[in-house]
Simulated scan of single mutants.
Amino acid sequence: MPHGAPQLPLTVTLAAVWAVFEVGYYSLYVAFVGRLRRVLARAAVRRRLEQISGGVLVALGVRLALDG
């Protein structure tokens, strides 16, 4: 925030802009996933997504174990 600017109105304005941005972003995300629902509901696609997310979790676990 600029020095000397009124903090409360500026903070409320920034929070409102952020909230509008987030609502718009998540609305687009939900609409996009909703359109892909048929594709994402297929057993082969769901299995592949689970394999990918499992691999990412294992990789993160290995990285965490090696950092400690």
Score class of each variant (00 low, 15 high):
residue 1 M to C: 01
residue 2 P to I: 02
residue 3 H to A: 12
residue 3 H to V: 09
residue 3 H to G: 03
residue 3 H to W: 05
residue 4 G to D: 00
residue 4 G to E: 01
residue 4 G to P: 01
residue 5 A to G: 00
residue 7 Q to D: 00
residue 7 Q to A: 06
residue 7 Q to T: 04
residue 7 Q to K: 04
residue 7 Q to F: 02
residue 8 L to C: 04
residue 8 L to Q: 07
residue 8 L to N: 03
residue 9 P to Q: 02
residue 9 P to T: 00
residue 9 P to A: 01
residue 10 L to T: 04
residue 10 L to Y: 02
residue 10 L to D: 01
residue 12 V to L: 10
residue 13 T to N: 03
residue 14 L to Q: 12
residue 14 L to W: 03
residue 14 L to K: 08
residue 15 A to V: 06
residue 17 V to H: 13
residue 17 V to D: 15
residue 17 V to N: 11
residue 18 W to H: 10
residue 19 A to V: 04
residue 19 A to P: 00
residue 19 A to I: 02
residue 19 A to F: 04
residue 20 V to P: 00
residue 21 F to L: 07
residue 22 E to P: 00
residue 22 E to G: 01
residue 22 E to L: 11
residue 22 E to M: 10
residue 23 V to L: 08
residue 24 G to P: 02
residue 24 G to Y: 02
residue 26 Y to F: 15
residue 26 Y to P: 01
residue 26 Y to T: 05
residue 27 S to L: 09
residue 27 S to P: 01
residue 28 L to Q: 03
residue 28 L to T: 04
residue 29 Y to L: 11
residue 30 V to Y: 11
residue 31 A to I: 09
residue 31 A to K: 05
residue 32 F to R: 14
residue 32 F to Q: 07
residue 32 F to G: 04
residue 33 V to M: 15
residue 33 V to A: 13
residue 34 G to H: 05
residue 34 G to E: 06
residue 35 R to T: 10
residue 36 L to E: 14
residue 37 R to F: 12
residue 37 R to L: 14
residue 37 R to H: 14
residue 38 R to E: 15
residue 38 R to G: 15
residue 39 V to M: 13
residue 39 V to Y: 14
residue 40 L to Y: 11
residue 41 A to N: 12
residue 42 R to N: 08
residue 42 R to G: 14
residue 42 R to T: 09
residue 42 R to S: 11
residue 43 A to K: 05
residue 43 A to S: 14
residue 43 A to M: 04
residue 44 A to S: 14
residue 44 A to Q: 09
residue 45 V to A: 09
residue 47 R to G: 00
residue 47 R to E: 10
residue 48 R to Y: 07
residue 48 R to K: 10
residue 49 L to V: 08
residue 49 L to S: 08
residue 50 E to Q: 12
residue 50 E to L: 11
residue 51 Q to M: 14
residue 53 S to Y: 05
residue 54 G to S: 13
residue 55 G to P: 10
residue 55 G to E: 09
residue 56 V to C: 07
residue 56 V to I: 15
residue 56 V to A: 11
residue 56 V to S: 08
residue 57 L to A: 15
residue 57 L to T: 12
residue 57 L to V: 08
residue 57 L to C: 09
residue 58 V to M: 06
residue 59 A to R: 08
residue 60 L to Y: 07
residue 61 G to V: 05
residue 61 G to E: 04
residue 63 R to M: 13
residue 63 R to Q: 08
residue 63 R to V: 13
residue 63 R to T: 13
residue 63 R to C: 13
residue 63 R to W: 12
residue 64 L to K: 12
residue 64 L to R: 15
residue 65 A to D: 03
residue 66 L to W: 09
residue 67 D to N: 06
residue 68 G to P: 05
residue 68 G to N: 11
residue 68 G to E: 13
